[in-house]
Amino acid sequence: MTSTIPADLPLPGAKTTQGAVERADEGNITRRSKRRLTSRGATIASLVIAILWTIPTFGLFVTSLRPQEEITRSGWWEVFLRWDLTLENYQTVLANEDLSRSFINSIVITLPATVAPLVVAALAAYAFAWIDFKGKNTLFILVFALQIVPIQMTLVPLLTLFFRGLHTAGGTLFEGFQGAGIYTQVWIAHTIFALPLAIFLLHNFISEIPGEVIEAARVDGAGHGQIFLRIVLPLTVPAIASFAIFQFLWVWNDLLVALIFASGEASPITRTLAELTGQFGRTAYLLPAGAFIAMIVPLIVFFALQRYFVRGLLAGSTKG
C-alpha cells in the first residue's frame, strides 16, 4: 500500500507515461500466459494457502446449515456421508426482530465512523509529512505509539466525559452528550480509537509522494488546502481505500466499544450476535448462521473497494 509511488513518478502533464502504462499492460498480457506455464509451484502453493485459509470458514458455513442436534453429535464433514442440511437456523435467526434493527444500527454506526477518522487522520498525516515544524518527529512518534494504548483503559475516562461533560468550579466547559442522539458517542469513540493507526498508515503513504510534485503545485500558486485536496488525496486513493476497508471491518465487527458506547436502541449486530447464544448458551447453535448474515456487508464492501487498490494508483500517475 505504501512506498508504491515509484521514484520516477511522472510530473503532471508528462504525455509519455500514458503510453508507458499501455505498453506495460500489453506486456502483462503476454507475460501472464508465460507465467501460468512456468510457475506451477507458485500455483500449487497459492492453492494450498487458499484451501487452508478457507477450510475453517467453510466448516462454519456447513455447520450453519446443520440441524441443532447434529452439531454437537458429529463433525461437520460428516454431511458428505449423510446429507442432512436445513435452512432452519437461518430462518430462526432472521425471525429475530432485534437482528434487523441492529443490522441497520451497524450501518449507521460504521459509515460515519469510517469516514471521520480517515479525513481527520489524512489532515494530520499531511501536516506531519509536508509542513515543517520543530518537534515534528517526536510528536509523530508519540501519535504512533498511542496505538498500543489498550482500549479498555480508555473507556472509563471517555464515558465519564461523554456522560457528565466537563465542569470546573466556575461553570460548564462541555455539556456532555446526554440526550444528544444515540449514535454520537459511538461515532466519536471509534474515530478517536482509529486515529493513531490511520495517521501512521496514511503518513507513510503521503510522505512518499515525490517532493517535486508538491513543489510544482506550490510554484503554480496552490496553497496547502489545494495541494491536499487536488494532489495528495487523489494520489493516496489506494491507501485511503484499503484503510477504509479495514476501518469498516473493525468497526463492523467491534463488540468492545459497542458494549460501552452503543447500548440499548443503538446496539449493533455484534451485540445481537453475542446474545444469540441465549441464557446459559442454550441456543449457541444459531451463532454460525448469525455470523454469516453479519459477514455479508463486509464482503460487499471489500468487493466494491478492491479495484481502487490498483486503479487509484494508475489514475494518480497518469492524471497527476
Binding site: L287, A291, A294, P298
Partner: peptide, 8 residues
C-alpha cells in the same frame, strides 16, 4: 477471516 466477527 477478517470479515468474520470474533464471535463466529
Amino acid at each position: 477471516p477478517m470479515a468474520i466477527s470474533f464471535v463466529g
